[in-house]
């Protein structure tokens, strides 16, 4: 279980996160939704200890995040995390060199799944394929939790479809996934758990199937209620 408790963050005088709490479970896809840009990426950065926080706590299975946690939880940011002049195969080698949890077999499978060529240089790839390389590097690790920042933003429709397809396969099965997005149409029927954020706070946290079953509402219905209230 990944718990975010009362997370606070200031940028200068601006309080970006005003006490954000939520829980993500293993085997579930949790979606952080916010209409405005601020905050979501910061939450993921804070979980991974990539930015200083001004308060709160982050616990992975009850323990705080340390260097060892990077074998258990990984982050796929909305940016290239390898050096652009690297070939995909070199980037994979880099991962293999530093991570015990790197799973070469799964990496090869992902190359095939995304139809990527290991000899291509990362800098020569389209935006969609760059995003796929990022996903490949994250998903080929045998980690329990995967954080993804806006995996669908700014890329073509077919790449989006392919990336959404990842969520329907064993590549994601059994893991805990936290995904941020401002546009959920690509994955609405795929997510298990939703955290609606606005203005640095959690406005509502719910299980998608429960809301459908008990209230007959879609995720977008709930968003409309919450954000337009």
């Amino acid at each position: 279980m990944l718990e975010v408790k009362d997370l606070k963050k200031k940028f200068g005088r601006k309080q970006v996160l005003k006490g954000v709490s939520f829980t993500a479970k293993k085997g579930e896809i949790t979606c952080l939704i916010g209409i405005n840009g601020v905050g979501k990426t910061t939450i993921l950065n804070a979980i991974m200890r990539l930015t200083a926080i001004n308060g709160g706590q982050i616990l992975l299975n009850g323990e705080s995040i340390t260097k060892k946690s990077y074998e258990k939880i990984t982050f796929i940011p909305d940016a290239i995390t390898v050096m652009p002049h690297m070939k995909i195969s070199e980037a994979m080698q880099f991962m293999d060199d530093f991570y015990d949890c790197w799973n070469e077999k799964r990496a090869t499978e992902l190359l095939d799944f995304f139809k990527l060529n290991a000899n291509d240089r990362v800098s020569s790839l389209s935006k969609g394929n760059t995003a796929k390389v990022n996903l490949l590097l994250g998903l080929a690790m045998d980690v329990d939790y995967v954080l993804m920042d806006e995996p669908f933003s700014g890329i073509d429709m077919f790449s989006r479809e392919k990336i959404a397809e990842v969520f329907t396969t064993h590549l994601i099965e059994d893991r805990g996934v936290i995904i941020t997005t401002h546009e959920i149409s690509d994955i609405e029927h795929l997510i298990d758990h939703v955290v609606l954020l606005d203005n640095g706070r959690v406005l509502k946290e719910f299980a998608t199937e429960e809301v459908r079953e008990q209230e007959g509402k879609s995720v977008v219905d709930v968003m409309r209620e919450v954000y337009q209230a």
Binding site: L50, K67, F75, P77, A79, I80, T81, P84, F98
Partner: peptide
């Protein structure tokens, strides 16, 4: 720039 390799470097499971 475009290449934010620092993400990777800081997330290597080793002492920073």
């Amino acid at each position: 720039g475009k290449n934010t390799f620092i993400y990777r470097l800081l997330m290597i499971p080793t002492a920073r």
